[in-house]
């Protein structure tokens, strides 16, 4: 009995490992381990920390495409809004902390900051859905993907320059969120901020997954992504779902922006790099595939870390984009495929 089950599991694993997804995942793990053995543990740590945050941004991007069919070019700007909010919320908290180093805000302050950024991101998401996307949806449905894409291009230009106009073009950054000694794992020192930001990313991904899989609202979102008319027929309020999706995906990007404020200070075009990376991820994993985006985020993060490690910084756009082009030539729908335009479905 046990042997049979074992055999069946083994068969499934070996079958999975022959698909493109399986091969890609295994290859990623092998390369990551090899590089870690070659250069030391910090390669792995960097990959995991970058990948975690990239996963948040890419997940939002994949969600918006899967549910609303919008190829979002302004997603980096929600990242920027997150980091901007975090800066303005955290600065007074930080002043308070330096005055009273024993208060509970030392630990809670950064968390409050990130939650505030999340809320602001969600609000901006709702605003852009109401002011921009629903307006286009009311007027035209033909050629929707391309038109909404151009709309997001305009939105990105507006948000970047609004930041420059109202908040100035200088770098608004902080040195750290959580003070204290770095944590040491496997002889690698990880600053507390990095460790916390990865933990946060992991928590958010898991919570998000539970939300999408087990709650009614999450299921409604998935239903809309699969078939809009069908969802309408069974009584799902489309408007609310679309608005919720937008605010969810924007708040995911804002969380990433806020928790990475110590690495990326807030300035008008800070969102461009996360945007490029998230697009790499989403195209690599397959547009609209949210779980694939999480895996893809780690792959792209690994690619980026390895490029910087072995070839030198500055090449980190050339090598990943070249590789992704090659992958796309052989597998146009992405590694994890998106023939089924589901959100969390496979």
């Amino acid at each position: 009995m046990v042997e049979q089950v074992e055999k069946r599991i083994w068969e499934r694993v070996s079958k999975w490992s022959r698909t493109a997804a399986g091969m890609a995942v295994i290859l990623t793990v092998v390369v990551a381990v090899a590089a870690t053995l070659d250069r030391g543990g910090y390669v792995l740590v960097n990959t995991v920390v970058t990948g975690g945050m990239l996963a948040l941004v890419a997940m939002g991007l994949a969600l918006v495409f899967g549910v609303m069919n919008i190829p979002m070019f302004a997603h980096g700007e929600y990242f920027m809004i997150g980091s901007l909010t975090a800066y303005y919320v955290f600065t007074p908290i930080n002043n308070y902390i330096t005055m009273n180093p024993d208060s509970s805000l030392v630990f809670l302050g950064p968390l409050i900051t990130i939650v505030a950024a999340m809320i602001v991101g969600a609000l901006v998401g709702v605003a852009s859905e109401v002011l921009v996307f629903s307006q286009l949806r009311k007027r035209s449905r033909e050629n929707w993907v391309m038109n909404s894409f151009l709309l997001t291009v305009g939105l990105s230009v507006v948000l970047i320059n609004a930041h420059q106009l109202f908040f100035g073009a200088d770098f608004k950054g902080i040195t750290r969120y959580w003070a204290g000694m770095p944590i040491s794992i496997m002889d690698v020192f990880i600053s507390r901020d990095r460790a916390m930001s990865f933990t946060l990313a992991a928590i958010v991904v898991v919570v998000f997954w539970f939300f999408m899989t087990y709650t009614r609202t999450g299921r409604a979102i998935r239903a809309v992504s699969q078939d809009e008319n069908g969802a309408l027929m069974v009584g799902i309020g489309l408007k609310g779902i679309l608005m919720l999706t937008m605010s969810l995906s924007c708040s995911l990007a804002a969380i990433a922006g806020a928790s990475l404020l110590f690495m990326y200070p807030a300035y008008p075009s800070v969102g461009l790099e996360p945007l490029y990376m998230a697009w790499f991820v989403v195209i690599l994993a397959g547009l609209g595939n949210v779980l694939g985006a999480v895996m893809g985020a780690f792959m792209v993060a690994l690619l980026k870390v390895l490029t910087i490690e072995y070839i030198g910084s500055g090449w980190d756009f050339v090598v990943p984009s070249a590789l992704i082009i090659v992958v796309l030539i052989f597998k146009p729908s992405g590694i994890f495929g998106s023939e089924v335009r589901g959100v969390l479905d496979k």
Partner: peptide, 28 residues
Amino acid sequence: AVTLRLRGIFAACLAWFFGLALMGLATK
């Protein structure tokens, strides 16, 4: 030729990645 099998937004993205790669090359 590379984007032949892709349509719409995929082709746009691929052209964009080509552009990013070219810009990176010109920088480095």
